[in-house]
């Protein structure tokens, strides 16, 4: 064999060796590489990816912030709405309470106010109006009670409110309270300090005055009594704010 040919053989063999060596290395790299894995990414690819993610992050964060702001606003609005509503409701409740449009409870007195038992026999015509319990008597009674700090009053379940009227229908039997007929005996419920109320009626001479006509007034203290609300209508026709 010529020397030249051996050289050629060895050279080509060597070249093939190197070629296949690199070839297989590359095969291996390509085969084993997960292109999406970070380890194998090129630097600029990573940089691009990073930039993308950063942008995405910023966008998302901005969105998040916006949403949070909106949420906050909504929350504030809703809470302030709630507060306003609560205050308004409270005010309405208070107003109703004062006006007598709600059933109320509290300590107080039950006053039983009766005509004389044998009134039919004892009256003569002239005295009759005085001996019967009249609207003015009730009005005086209520006035005294109010003076003593009564917070709620009802007569035969007719709640006394600012609109309440006391009217004598005829001279004797019937009285109109809240435009409804009531007649003796009267059961007057009062919420307030029982001692003051009693004192007001006795101390002012109201009880003794009425006793002169044979009328009886009895007091019953109660720890807790219920006074019903005013059940008429409260429509206003003429007044305006």
């Amino acid at each position: 064999m010529k020397k030249g040919k051996i050289t050629i053989t060895i050279t080509i063999g060597l070249a093939c060796f190197v070629l296949v060596l690199i070839l297989f290395m590359q095969f291996k790299v390509v085969y084993q590489t997960d292109i999406t894995s970070i380890d194998t990414m090129k630097e600029d690819e990573l940089r691009t990816e990073l930039a993308n993610w950063k942008q995405k992050y910023n966008e998302t964060e901005e969105k998040y912030k916006n949403t949070e702001d909106t949420l906050k606003k909504y929350k504030e609005e809703s809470s302030s709405d709630k507060d306003t509503r609560k205050t308004l409701e409270k005010e309405i409740e208070d107003a109703k309470l004062v006006l007598g449009l709600t059933n109320v409870e509290g300590p107080g007195l039950i006053i039983t106010y009766k005509n004389s038992d044998n009134i039919e026999q004892t009256i003569n015509q002239e005295e009759s109006t005085d001996k019967y319990i009249g609207a003015t008597d009730l009005l005086r009674l209520v006035n005294h009670l109010k003076d003593a700090g009564a917070e709620a009053i009802s007569i035969n379940n007719q709640r006394i409110i600012n609109k309440t009227d006391f009217a004598q229908i005829n001279d004797t039997t019937y009285i109109k309270i809240n435009s409804k007929r009531v007649s003796a005996p009267f059961e007057i419920k009062v919420i307030g300090d029982a001692d003051y109320l009693k004192g007001a009626l006795i101390g002012t001479g109201f009880v003794s005055d009425q006793k002169k006509y044979g009328q009886t007034i009895e007091f019953e203290e109660k720890k807790k009594l219920t006074i019903n609300k005013y059940d008429g209508n409260m429509d206003l026709k003429y007044i305006e704010e």
């Binding site: 053989t9 093939c16 070629l19 590489t33 990414m41």
Partner: peptide, 24 residues
């Protein structure tokens, strides 16, 4: 020579450590 070179290269190439994708 070519066959020997290829076989040797393949064997060694497979057993060499993997290189980074950056340089592929």
């Amino acid at each position: 020579a070519i066959v020997i070179g290829c076989v040797l290269g393949a064997i060694i190439g497979i057993n060499l450590p993997i290189i980074s994708y950056t340089y592929s």
